[in-house]
Structure formats: C-alpha cells, structure tokens
C-alpha cells in the first residue's frame, strides 16, 4: 500500500530525514515513536506531500508521489488527523465532514450529508451534528476531525499525535474510535506516545531517531526487549 524508499528531507541545511525505507502493507497499523524533533511529523507529512521531499521515492496505492496531479490523487486517498484538530471553525460538525466529498469528490449535498451523518454517528457524535467546533470538547473535536478525514473514503489514514493535545479523560474516546478503525482493516500510520494503544492495536512499531529508523518490529517485542541502545533509552523514559 505504501512504499517509501531512500527518503531524504532537508529544511534548508538541516537534514531531518536521512534515508527512510519502509513498506507498509494493506490493513497494517504502523505506530511511529521517537523523541521530540526526531522527524516523526515530517515523515508523516511527506506521505501526503504537505512537505516537499528532497529526494527519494514514495508510492501510495500504486500512485507515485511526483506530479502535481498525482499529489491531488494521493491526497484524496490519504486521510490525515492533526494534533491540533484543525477543524474549520466557521462550519458546523456536519459541514466540516460533508464539505470535501462535495467539492472534491463531486457528490451531491444530500449524498455528502448522508455520509457525514453516518460517520458522525460512527464516532459517537450524533447529537453534535449542528454544533460549531468551539462548542465541542477537544475529544469531540478530534472525533469530528477523524470523521472528516474518513468522509473522503481514504485507503490510508495518517495520525500525528492525535491525543497529545487532549485532557487525559478524553484520550480514551479518541483511541476507541481509532481502534475500531483498525479493526475494520484501515491501513494506518500513527505517531503516538500511547504505548498501550501501540501494543494492543499496532502490527508494527518503528522507532525513529535523528531521521533514521533505528529499530522496528512487533510492538510487544520491541517494548519488552528493545535491541538498539537508543530505543532502550527512549523507552525507559516513557514506559
């Protein structure tokens, strides 16, 4: 589903990604961990070209990420959920979810609203359909954001620390939605510090350190028996 080979990314003179290679299969859930500034967000953002890559190759669902037309095609297939939700504040929850299907997928308003309603029900927000984002809690906003990404019927979902801006009591509701999604077979790449979630839902964990994947494997094994000293040091701090 996702092939990345020899991905390099510079910000000016700063090399943030130093040759990432990874192949992610359909239905796989990959959890990305690593210290702050190690390049996790940058890696994720390269996957839907929110960042231009310096060199290397990315192919998603058979589409190489090179021409402008392909970028738009890939963005339709890849949903993204941000740490700070980034809901559209001038639109209700339903409008947030139903907009892109209408203007990007050219669905009618009824069809789009239908999809929007289904997804808001799915994330447990059937009673908040007509609320504006500022009237929703953080956890609710993030669930709307997930519904919004799902409304495009993506084949891959990217999550960049989706729960780290949330109060602790709201983390669970968002993780529950993500767990359901994984169970339904969504291909997911998740940057998170929620080790319980990683262990339970993740098929694979990759540890990024200074722009390289230094260790990867089954989450349970990596967490209980890390091989690389960097991984050991990182895990000892957060586990």
């Amino acid at each position: 589903m996702i092939y990345v080979s020899n991905l390099h990314k510079y910000f000016g003179a700063l090399e943030v990604l130093k040759g990432i290679d990874i192949h992610i299969k359909e239905r796989e859930v990959v959890v990305v961990i690593g210290a702050s500034g190690s390049g996790k967000s940058t890696f994720l953002r390269c996957l839907n070209k929110l960042e231009d890559i310096t060199s290397g190759e990315i192919v998603i669902d058979g589409i190489p990420l090179n021409s402008e037309a392909n970028v738009n095609a890939i963005r339709r297939e890849v949903g993204m959920v941000f740490q700070r939700f980034n809901l559209f504040p001038h639109m209700t929850a339903l409008e947030n979810v139903a907009l892109a299907p209408q203007i990007v997928r050219n669905l009618s308003k009824q069809e789009a609203n239908q999809i929007g309603m289904e997804l808001l029900i799915k994330v447990g927000l059937s009673d908040k359909v007509n609320e504006y984002p500022r009237r929703l809690s953080g956890g609710q906003q993030q669930r709307v954001a997930i519904a919004r990404a799902l409304a495009m019927r993506p084949k891959v979902m990217l999550f960049d620390e989706p729960t780290s801006a949330l109060d602790p009591e709201m983390v669970g509701e968002v993780l529950a939605v993500m767990r359901d999604l994984a169970r339904e077979g969504m291909t997911m790449v998740v940057v998170t510090h929620e080790m319980g979630f990683a262990r339970e839902v993740g098929d694979r964990v990759i540890f990024i350190d200074e722009g390289v994947i230094v260790e990867e494997g089954n989450p349970v094994e990596v967490f209980s028996n890390p091989q690389n000293p960097r991984t050991q040091a990182f895990l000892s701090k957060i586990l």
Binding site: N48, L50, N72, R75, R76, V78, G79, M80, F82, R84, N86, L87, F88, L99, A100, I103, V104, A145, R148, A149, M152
Partner: peptide, 16 residues
C-alpha cells in the same frame, strides 16, 4: 496555516 493544511490534506485545490 493548519487550516490550509487540513483543507489540502482533504484533496482540495489551492483555489478551493
């Protein structure tokens, strides 16, 4: 800028 990024990540063009 997160607004633009969210919109673009949903497949919207610059204009949209």
């Amino acid at each position: 800028y997160g607004q633009t990024e969210a919109a673009r990540s949903l497949g919207m063009s610059h204009f949209q």
